Simulated scan of single mutants.
Amino acid sequence: MDLPEGLTARPYSAADLDAVFAVAAAQQQHDIGRVDVERADFEADWGRSSFAFDTMTMGVYDGDRMVAFAELIHDGRAEASVLPEYRRRGIGTALAHWAEDAARRQGYTSIGGPQPQGSDGERLLEKLGYEQRWTSWVLQVPEGTAVPHRDLPTGYALREATPDDYQAVHDVVEDAFLEWSVREREPLDDFLAVTVRRPGHEPWMLRVVTDPSGEIVGTAIVVMADDESGQVMEGYVERLAVRKDQRGQGLAQALLVDAFEQARQHGAPRSGLSTDSRTGALSLYEKVGMVVVDTWVNRGIEL
């Protein structure tokens, strides 16, 4: 890697969790004015069977201090952060080139990721030839906002999932997301690593809707986001999916409202989620009282 004099680079490990989180948190605080990322986000990704530290991570160090990092997530997706005080020194460019080379070695066909619109990261990727693939929005139900209850159609039921439901939930999520997401199907074990095995997960956080025959036709997955003191700040709907032949009946709205209600009952003052321009779902979320708080641009490059 072509780094400024005095800096070094090497793959990191699970023991570097605090250092990776500190860099990511500092970047978010600088770019969007708050910290949404959690240590559990990294722990969950690192727990996937498809993840390998030695080939999919790279940290940049000033002495013993990590000042930047990058890691591969899957084909088409990488994450990277640079401490604000270390920017404009070529570190981001070096990490982008590392990610491209590492992705090629993994057999990936493209690489990229989301950056806050107009941020240093987004401008850098544009300069490096990364094309805009889609726009993403972070939405929230503001604290104190009342969200009207949504009734289900006759014969449908909404409940907490059980371990016997995991395969069906995975199928509903992957079938729905692969209608617009160009990637390989996520293995069940990787899905479980970032959902039910994610640190802090509790059974109530995985919600399902069943049809009159008892078959799972929709799901919502909730993550409870804490601040550094451990106080719950937000109930975040990580994934929301309804089977294609079951749409148009209000199931998604019912799942969303239920997720918000459950999160509030478990101490979250507000709820949030993200969506992007590929899904066409922005209006759905606005109908249940959500408002856009951030806009992100996903840029990528073919390999």
Rank of each mutant, 00 (worst) to 15 (best):
M233Y: 10
G230I: 02
E202A: 15
W204V: 13
P212W: 12
E215T: 09
S229T: 14
R207N: 05
H201R: 11
M205K: 14
V222Y: 02
D227Y: 09
S213W: 00
V208C: 04
H201M: 12
H201Y: 09
E215W: 01
A220M: 05
L206V: 05
V222L: 09
W204E: 15
A220P: 02
S213M: 01
I216C: 03
M224K: 04
G230A: 08
G218L: 00
D227C: 12
P203M: 14
D227W: 11
I216F: 08
V232I: 14
A241P: 06
W204N: 11
H201N: 15
E215M: 01
S229F: 10
G200D: 10
E234T: 12
V237I: 14
T219M: 12
V232D: 02
V242F: 07
G235V: 10
P199L: 13
L206K: 13
D227S: 07
Y236K: 06
V208F: 03
E234P: 07
I221A: 08
M233Q: 15
V242Y: 02
R207P: 02
T219L: 07
W204M: 13
V237G: 03
R198V: 04
D226T: 15
R243K: 14
R198A: 10
V242R: 04
V217M: 00
Y236N: 07
K244T: 12
E228C: 03
R197A: 06
